[in-house]
Write a protein that binds this DNA or RNA. Structure first.
Lengths: 196, 196
DNA sequence: GCAACAGATGTTAGTGACTAACATTTGAGG
DNA sequence: CCTCAAATGTTAGTCACTAACATCTGTTGC
């Protein structure tokens, strides 16, 4: 059951995506987005705190954090995070990802949005650390999260801008399986062990 | 020899720092900063492209990138970057760091500035990769840079907000020597080897 | 000295993101 | 139909940021 507010929000996001692709982020005003969605600019700001959030908002941080926290402890933080991210692959493949792909492609080529993207990554990093860090390993967790998310970001940018036909789940899994051994100097057979 | 423009720029930064500390980032207008520095708001924007850059601008990215690029190749990217950062310790200790400390302390507690801080880190990461990546190891370099910079960021925040009396050089060196073994699963005696 | 030139700054008049206060509409349950 | 609350609209701002053009200030060549 989608409420009226949710429908308005979706219309705003969709209209913004169309307009940004047509004329670029900077050249489109909030007024225009609101008009295209059939609402006033005040309604826009009731749904999104800033212009950039209509493009950059995503609801995945809690999901990612929970997936990492759900991994067993007792392994190195980097492996725990990588396993958590890989566990999301099936979900990523069933999600409708077309809009996300368009949004990332826009954000990647708009200088005005790069700070916001970096902030998104930083927020995901914080969410992982808060949800999954155990006593005393926050620093290691933060560093491991930064490393894994750097790999995921690279993969996301390629996925959105190149014409990759592979699914997000595949790409993220590949990135994690290649990246974790690289970080661990190839000694830890991270994904050779059984996945429960 | 400091030019008039450099003096104006310095006055603007100093005035902004004072005002932000006094009343918070949001409550201070660009007009007020300009007035406190004895110039008009147009002059402010000739020296800083946005309000947040008066606080967040720093000239270190090229220095950091060069320091990493100056490290010998043939070692794992993470070790190369860590060595590059540690090589900057003497420089960090002779730099006048009081203003940087105040700026970071402000940025750390102001939500409006967190995107800008993340963008700063991302820019440093890009600078390192562009300057120091060799054929084929860009992905690994990016990930290693993200990991090292996560550690440095944590150290910087602690240094600026806690009342640490240790120097930046000491703190960064400690972070790198503790962090690199952690990432490499403690097998690589990164800093036991001779430093040329 | 002084003329001339360029770098630095000022003035003015905008646009557009964002906010506050208050009025209005819309839709679901009684 | 009525009512109430969620959702949206109107209005009138503030402030970051920009463009175009005027003025100033210090230096350089004479």
């Amino acid at each position: 059951m989608t409420t009226r507010a949710e429908a308005t929000r979706a219309r705003l996001q969709s209209a913004a995506l169309d307009l940004f692709e047509e004329r670029g982020y900077r050249a489109v005003t909030v007024e225009e987005i609101a008009a295209a969605a059939g609402v006033s600019h005040m309604t826009f700001f009731r749904h999104f705190p800033t212009k950039e959030r209509v493009l950059l908002d995503d609801p995945f941080d809690p999901v990612i954090a929970a997936a990492v926290a759900a991994q067993p402890t007792g392994m190195p933080p980097i492996e725990r995070i990588a396993r958590g991210l890989v566990s999301l692959a099936p979900l990523l493949d069933q999600e409708p990802t077309a809009q996300a792909r368009r949004a990332i492609a826009i954000a990647a080529r708009e200088p005005d949005l790069q700070a916001g993207m970096a902030a998104n990554t930083a927020a995901t990093e914080r969410a992982i650390v808060e949800a999954a860090a155990t006593a005393g390993d926050e620093p290691a967790m933060r560093i491991a999260a930064a490393a894994c998310l750097a790999a995921v970001t690279a993969v996301l940018l390629g996925w959105a801008t190149d014409g990759s036909t592979r699914t997000l789940g595949e790409l993220v899994s590949t990135a994690m399986t290649t990246v974790v051994p690289a970080l661990a100097e190839a000694q830890v057979p991270a994904f050779a062990r059984a996945t429960p």
